[in-house]
């Protein structure tokens, strides 16, 4: 039995580095390309040279700042994404708690609707949503990029399933001590739900950080545009400046990696407890 387990471990651990390379190589190639002259990026792409920076020139990074207001885009992305993540965590956890723990008329129907909403992609509702925000006069603002994405059916469902599994004893003890639903939620339930908050925060962050279609439809000013629209400015008539695109990509991906590294522990715990799969 032990022999078989060792063999399995050897097999798994010999496969894992190879698998991880498949995902790491494109990121590494982007990093290496960001330090190369534009014409060398594609020339080296098909060979081993593609994976090593020809020089450590920062010219491409300089070009990015020269060509687009990168810092403005970065700040916009951070503001939009962090607001959605924070407000979404509050709103969706409250909704999940209400569905999991409170008794109120129509609860089961609302839950059904929320589950049904999970399968409707943004693309399907983009046009009516566009008309709605146009009528509200929200086009080309931060508001239009934030409000429609605070409430999220998938996040509500994650919180709902997590809260269902939380022992009721804590809440009952708090209720006996005279705490109301709000206090129970903020003082008892929320502190015990850190893993699911982390999982929802990361998933929301990843989705919103790379959001392209909606901002494309509803914004046109550089003042409010996020990073993914910034990189679109580099797709011009050929020849494309691939070094600049890679440099932009590196700077766009770095915050995502940073957030993931910081929250990794809670994210893994959240995935384990909620059953989220990537």
């Amino acid at each position: 039995m032990n022999h078989r387990r060792v063999l399995n471990s050897v097999l798994v651990y010999s496969l894992l580095p190879g698998m991880s390379l498949i995902f790491l190589i494109p990121v590494w190639m982007m990093l290496a390309g960001s330090f190369k002259a534009d014409d060398l990026v594609l020339q080296h792409a098909g060979s081993l040279q593609g994976y090593f920076p020809a020089s450590m020139s920062m010219q491409n990074y300089q070009d990015v700042f020269d060509r687009v207001p990168f810092l403005r885009y970065l700040l916009n992305s951070m503001l939009i994404t962090s607001t959605i993540v924070i407000a979404g965590a509050l709103v969706n956890s409250l909704a999940g708690y209400a569905l999991a723990r409170l008794r109120w008329p129509g609860r089961d129907w609302i839950l059904l609707v929320i589950i049904a909403l999970m399968i409707i992609p943004l693309e399907a509702i983009a046009v009516p949503l566009f008309y709605e925000v146009t009528l509200l006069g929200w086009r080309d603002t931060y508001l239009v990029q934030i409000v429609p994405f605070i409430a999220n059916a998938f996040s509500i469902y994650l919180f709902y399933t997590f809260f269902l599994g939380l022992p009721r004893e804590f809440e009952e003890a708090a209720r006996i001590d005279g705490a109301g639903s709000w206090r129970i939620f903020f003082n008892i339930v929320a502190p015990n739900a850190k893993p699911v908050y982390a999982a929802v925060a990361i998933l929301t962050f990843l989705t919103q950080w790379g959001s392209f279609l909606w901002p494309l439809m509803v914004t046109h000013s550089e003042e409010v545009r996020p990073l993914p629209l910034g990189i679109a400015a580099f797709y011009t008539l050929p020849p494309l400046q691939w070094g600049d695109i890679f440099a932009f990509g590196v700077m766009m991906v770095s915050p995502v990696l940073l957030v993931f590294i910081v929250f990794q522990r809670w994210f893994v715990a959240g995935v384990a407890t909620t059953g989220v799969k990537g």
Binding site: T83, W138, T141, Y142, L143, V147, S221, E223, V224
Partner: peptide, 11 residues
């Protein structure tokens, strides 16, 4: 308060 204020920034 913050959300509507943010929307006013570019305006």
């Amino acid at each position: 308060l913050v959300l509507p204020l943010m929307s006013l920034l570019p305006a």
